[in-house]
C-alpha cells in the first residue's frame, strides 16, 4: 500500500526569508547573541530566545565537517528523486541504476554551525569524500523556495565567468527574478510504502470470502460475534477462537449519503455508505448500498450482499461488490438499536 500526502506548511518570517533566499540562489544565516552565526538560521536564539535580527548571507562555499556514503540510496533522496525528474530518459536511467551519493554536515563560509545536505563527489565516488573537503551548492533548475532548491553540494568551485550550474539544466532558467514575491509557504510531498500483514483472524475471513462464505468469530467470554474478526474481543481482551459462519443478509443500522467527490473515489456520487449488521453478528461493518435511490435508504432497511461473479471471488474485500435492498419488511429498532 502506498500512502502519499503533500504537506503544506507556512514558513514564518525567518524560514520565509531563508527559503526566498534559496530560490534566489543565496544562503542566509542568523547571528546569535553570543556572536555565533547559524546557517540555516534559527527562528529563536538558542540562548536568549529572541528572534534573529536581519539575516546575513553565508557561503555559498563550505567545508565538510562530517560525511557518510550511501551505496544504496532510497527513492526520494537527493539525486534519486523520481518525482522530480520529468525527463523520462532520466527516470528509466534511475530506475535501472540508483545514484549513490554522500551525506554531509557542511559548515558554510561565515557560519559557525553546519547544514545537512547531499554531496555529489562526481566520478570519484566515496573516494572523493573526506572531512575538510570544500564544496559548493549545485542549484536546482526549478527553484520554488525549498531546501531542495539546492540539488546537492559538489566539489567544483564555481568561477565568476561560469556560475554554478543548475542540476540537469541546459537552459538558463536558473536565475529567478529578483522582484518575485517572497516565499511564504512550502510543500513537502511525503510518499511511503507499507506492506500490511493480515492477522490469522483476518486471514480466515478473507479466505472465506474467496469461497463465498462470511466467517466471523465468537468471544468465549461474552458470546458476542465479530465479523470480520480482529482476533480479540475488544470488550474482554481475550482471543476469539470459535469460528461462526453468517448469512449474507443484514440490517442497515446507520448510513450516510455521499454527495461529494474526492480524489481516488471508486463510485460516482451520490451513493450510500452504510453500517450493516449481518444477521447473527454483534458488530456492524461498513459497505456500499447500491441498487436503489439513495433517498430510499433508511435505518432498519433489510439488505443482502451482491457478490461479484464467481470467477472473480478473491481474498479481497471487494469480492462482495455491494449490498442491495432485499425487499423484506424493515427490522424493528429493538433488533439493532444497541449496535448503533
Amino acid at each position: 500500500m502506498e500512502i502519499a500526502f503533500d504537506y503544506t506548511r507556512s514558513l514564518g518570517p525567518v524560514l520565509g526569508q531563508f527559503m526566498t533566499g534559496l530560490r534566489d540562489q543565496r544562503i542566509l544565516g542568523a547571528r546569535a547573541a553570543d556572536g555565533r552565526v547559524h546557517a540555516p538560521p534559527f527562528e529563536y536564539d538558542p540562548v536568549t530566545a529572541s528572534p534573529p535580527g536581519e539575516l546575513l548571507e553565508v557561503g555559498p562555499g563550505g567545508t565538510v565537517v562530517s560525511w557518510t556514503w550511501l551505496p544504496e540510496p532510497l527513492d526520494g533522496q537527493p539525486l534519486n528523486d523520481q518525482a522530480a525528474l520529468n525527463d523520462p530518459a532520466a527516470l528509466n536511467d534511475l530506475a535501472a541504476q540508483p545514484r549513490p551519493f554522500g551525506w554531509a554536515l557542511i559548515r558554510l563560509d561565515g557560519a559557525d554551525t553546519a547544514m545537512l545536505h547531499a554531496v555529489d563527489p562526481g566520478p570519484a565516488g566515496p573516494a572523493g569524500m573526506r572531512t575538510g573537503m570544500r564544496v559548493w551548492p549545485r542549484w536546482a533548475a526549478h527553484r520554488v523556495g525549498s531546501i531542495r532548491d539546492i540539488a546537492c553540494f559538489a566539489p567544483d568551485e564555481p568561477t565568476p565567468e561560469a556560475p554554478a550550474p543548475a542540476a540537469g539544466d541546459t537552459v538558463s532558467d536558473n536565475t529567478a527574478p529578483d522582484h518575485a514575491a517572497p516565499v511564504t509557504m512550502t510543500i513537502t510531498p511525503v510518499r511511503l510504502r507499507y506492506l500490511h500483514t493480515a492477522s490469522p483472524a483476518e486471514s480466515a475471513y478473507l479466505r472465506g470470502l474467496a469461497e463465498g462464505r462470511l466467517l466471523g468469530q465468537r468471544c468465549p467470554a461474552c458470546g458476542q460475534v465479530y465479523i470480520p474478526s480482529r482476533g480479540t474481543c475488544p470488550a474482554d481482551g481475550v482471543p476469539t477462537d470459535a469460528e461462526v459462519e453468517l448469512p449474507d443478509t443484514g440490517t442497515i443500522t446507520t448510513f450516510s449519503v455521499v454527495n461529494v467527490g474526492y480524489p481516488g473515489q471508486q463510485v460516482t456520487p451520490p451513493y450510500v455508505a452504510a453500517a450493516i449488521l449481518l444477521d447473527g453478528a454483534d458488530i456492524a461493518f461498513q459497505h456500499l448500498i447500491l441498487g436503489c435511490d439513495p433517498a430510499d435508504v433508511h435505518m432498519g432497511m433489510r439488505v443482502r450482499a451482491v457478490w461479484r461473479p464467481r470467477e472473480q471471488w478473491t481474498r479481497h474485500a471487494d469480492t462482495i461488490s455491494h449490498f442491495t435492498p432485499s425487499g423484506e419488511p424493515d427490522a424493528p429498532y429493538e433488533s439493532y438499536g444497541r449496535h448503533i
Binding site: L15, M19, P78, M115, H117, I147
Partner: peptide, 10 residues
C-alpha cells in the same frame, strides 16, 4: 520538517 525531512535523510 522544513530544513531536513524534505531531503529524506534516512
Amino acid at each position: 520538517p522544513y530544513l531536513l525531512a524534505p531531503l529524506w535523510p534516512d
